[in-house]
């Protein structure tokens, strides 16, 4: 709206209408997010019987029984540590391997860089979810089906292409003179990596961490075909148990979903700014 138009009554009306529609559109979309989550959490405090009579009302006799039962049935006590191991382990692995490879691709001369870096970049659009069945068969073939190692391996491999792309492009922007002068002072490459590259690459490492923490914590399709033992399952698999035959036991299902959803919501509330930035920076194509 230019200032001129705004001063005429009609222009002011148009501006007010525009604002109204802006708020209405944003409001409806936000409500579609906030209300279902609120509704889920609220109903997790009702017994299934009360829920079947009243889905909209406030719980009359709030109960924590659903949580106790869901925690036990879902064996969340086992799943939480697993989710933490997978998320932390794979994220740390991805960051370290991607920074190492990114450093080599960006600052060391080799004819292998072009084809190898190129193959990683192709992998950005080649999602592992298209390989569910061959991956399942491969893990059986290698004898590592139903192991944490297989889960970490697949998660790291799936995260590497994007991470290597981001790290390589970032390290390219670090002045080569820094590396060269350290070389002249007699420092080895690994030492240069630890002392110069790693401290300078904290921003890109943060982006990679944020992208992977959320996606690995919530990952379902891959781990679903990689493990079948409860001792190795992660939270999303535990929550999935409450679909199917248990799906009409609403009280427990809602409690299980609330348990599974809360850690990421807290993570999001705390790191929202970094997550938003990371998503914008990480949406890359090959």
């Amino acid at each position: 709206m230019s200032e001129e138009i705004k001063t005429t009554p009609l222009g002011r009306l148009a501006a007010a209408l525009g604002r109204f529609f802006a708020y209405a559109a944003m409001g409806i979309f936000s409500l579609m997010t906030i209300y279902p989550i609120f509704w889920l959490v609220m109903n997790s405090f009702k017994t299934t019987r009360e829920f079947q009579v009243s889905q909209l009302g406030w719980p009359k006799e709030p109960t924590l029984k659903n949580y106790a039962q869901a925690w036990e049935m879902g064996e969340f006590g086992k799943l939480f540590p697993n989710s933490i191991i997978y998320t932390a382990g794979a994220t740390a692995g991805i960051i370290l391997l991607a920074l190492l490879a990114g450093f080599a691709f960006a600052k060391l001369k080799s004819r292998a860089t072009r084809p190898m870096y190129g193959s990683f970049v192709i992998g950005i659009l080649l999602t592992t979810n298209t390989l569910l069945i061959p991956l399942f068969l491969e893990m059986n073939l290698l004898g590592i089906y139903n192991t944490r190692f297989a889960v970490l391996l697949v998660y790291i491999g799936s995260g590497l292409p994007t991470a290597i792309y981001l790290c390589t492009e970032y390290i390219k922007s670090i002045p080569s003179a820094l590396v060269e002068s350290a070389r002249i002072d007699g420092a080895g490459f690994l030492r240069i990596f630890w002392k110069i590259i790693l401290p300078m690459a904290v921003p890109v490492a943060t982006t990679v961490a944020i992208l992977n923490i959320t996606s690995i914590w919530n990952e379902f399709a891959l781990i679903n075909i990689l493990v079948s033992k409860t001792e190795l399952k992660s939270l999303p698999l535990g929550m999935f148990k409450f679909s199917g035959s248990l799906s009409t036991d609403y009280g427990k299902q809602f409690a299980a979903l609330t348990i599974g959803m809360t850690p990421m919501l807290v993570f999001y509330v705390v790191f929202r700014k970094q997550i938003t930035k990371g998503v914008a920076a990480g949406a890359v194509k090959g």
């Binding site: 944003m26 979309f29 936000s30 997010t33 906030i34 279902p36 989550i37 889920l40 959320t214 914590w217 919530n218 379902f220 939270l235 999303p236 929550m239 999935f240 409450f242 679909s243 799906s247 299902q253 979903l257 599974g260 959803m261 990421m264 919501l265 993570f267 999001y268 929202r272 997550i275 938003t276 998503v279």
Partner: peptide, 18 residues
């Protein structure tokens, strides 16, 4: 911005069952 991104943060399992 914060609210509209929330569905991307919570697990797809929660979204689907919800």
């Amino acid at each position: 911005q914060g609210v509209l991104y929330v569905p991307n943060i919570i697990s797809v399992i929660v979204v689907g069952l919800l």
